[in-house]
């Protein structure tokens, strides 16, 4: 319990540190955001007015504290470009990005966990060798290329699914919305599976080598039976950790892949804002996505301790 509280404490510290990093990188690197957002032909008065509006004429520490206070209250500021509240912009995009990354994650986990375990148990069989070769290749494939190839074959040539875009009516037309998300989901899932299969396979291999599993086999348990009774719990610890990392990856994969399929989600918003130097939006999105990654990491740690009592003991002693 004490260790769990400690983990939550570290999470809070990392969140604050991440916010400092985001804030400092955007403020202290050369370049004046107020000047950039107004463009050429701006008078000094206009510039001054915008600066005081944005608060960039205040000392950096004051700016940071003000910003953090607003963020905690749910006020993410106003976009330089659209003049809309950043929180609203983000909320509008969630119905595309969240289903996309969650569906891709679930699909990848459902494929790669069984496949990885199977490939480890039959490591010298044809399936085991094939799985490990394909996943070695798969790790080297850029996710956007998978998307481009799927569009080429399944959308442009076979005309089975739309090549991109999202229905203007959104989820009011569920069938059309789902159809436009099929290819993006499959794309992200394929890229993630390559990584996950490798981790699951090597975690299972580690367990298979352990003494207690050999003893179980020598007592007459079959390969799968021994693994199911004595191995899976041990393998679950590294697998949970990779699932956690991959949940974050699926979100970032979605960010890239939305641009391949012209989906108006968080990724497209982030990219457009980066290109337009729309500071408040970039700041909120980068911090938000990083926070999701950090929280996932903390949850993974807690889950691992719940699964493996040895971990609880050693960490508690160390703490």
């Amino acid at each position: 319990m004490r260790a769990a509280l400690l983990r939550i404490g570290t999470l809070l510290i990392s969140l604050v540190l991440a916010s400092v990093v985001v804030f400092v990188v955007l403020r202290l690197l050369p370049g004046d955001s107020a000047g950039t957002s107004l463009g050429v032909g701006t008078t000094a008065d206009q510039l001054e007015q915008l600066r005081s509006e944005l608060g960039t004429d205040q000392p950096v520490v004051t700016q940071y504290v003000q910003w953090l206070g607003q963020v905690v209250r749910g006020d993410l500021g106003t976009s330089f470009v659209s003049r809309l509240p950043v929180a609203d912009l983000i909320t509008q995009k969630l119905p595309i990005t969240v289903p996309l990354s969650l569906a891709a994650f679930v699909m990848a986990a459902l494929v790669s966990v069984p496949l990885g375990v199977f490939a480890a148990v039959h490591r010298r069989g044809p399936v085991g060798v094939a799985v490990s070769a394909v996943s070695q290749l798969g790790v080297a494939v850029p996710v956007f290329w998978v998307g481009v190839l799927l569009v080429l074959v399944l959308a442009l040539q076979a005309r089975l699914l739309p090549a991109g875009g999202f229905p203007r009516t959104g989820w009011d037309d569920p069938a059309a919305a789902v159809r436009s998300l099929v290819l993006p989901v499959v794309t992200v899932a394929i890229a993630m599976s390559a990584v996950m299969v490798r981790y699951v396979r090597s975690a299972t291999l580690d367990v298979l080598d352990q003494d207690h599993l050999r003893t179980a086999r020598s007592l007459g348990y079959g390969r799968w039976h021994a693994l199911a009774r004595h191995g899976l719990r041990g393998a679950a610890v590294p697998v949970v950790s990779i699932l956690g990392i991959e949940l974050a990856t699926s979100l970032l994969g979605a960010v890239v892949i939305e641009n391949v399929f012209a989906l108006p989600g968080l990724g497209t918003l982030l990219l457009d804002s980066v290109k337009a130097r729309d500071l408040p939006v970039v700041q909120a999105l980068v911090l938000g996505l990083t926070a999701v990654v950090l929280v996932t990491n903390a949850l993974v740690d807690l889950a691992q301790r719940a699964i493996d009592p040895r971990l609880r003991l050693s960490k508690e002693v160390a703490a």
Partner: peptide, 23 residues
Amino acid sequence: LSAVDLLIAFPTLLLAMLIVTVR
């Protein structure tokens, strides 16, 4: 180490986007 841990958790793509926004 705590700085390194934070950096490991900070996705490369997002760091790149931060740097590109400014530079």
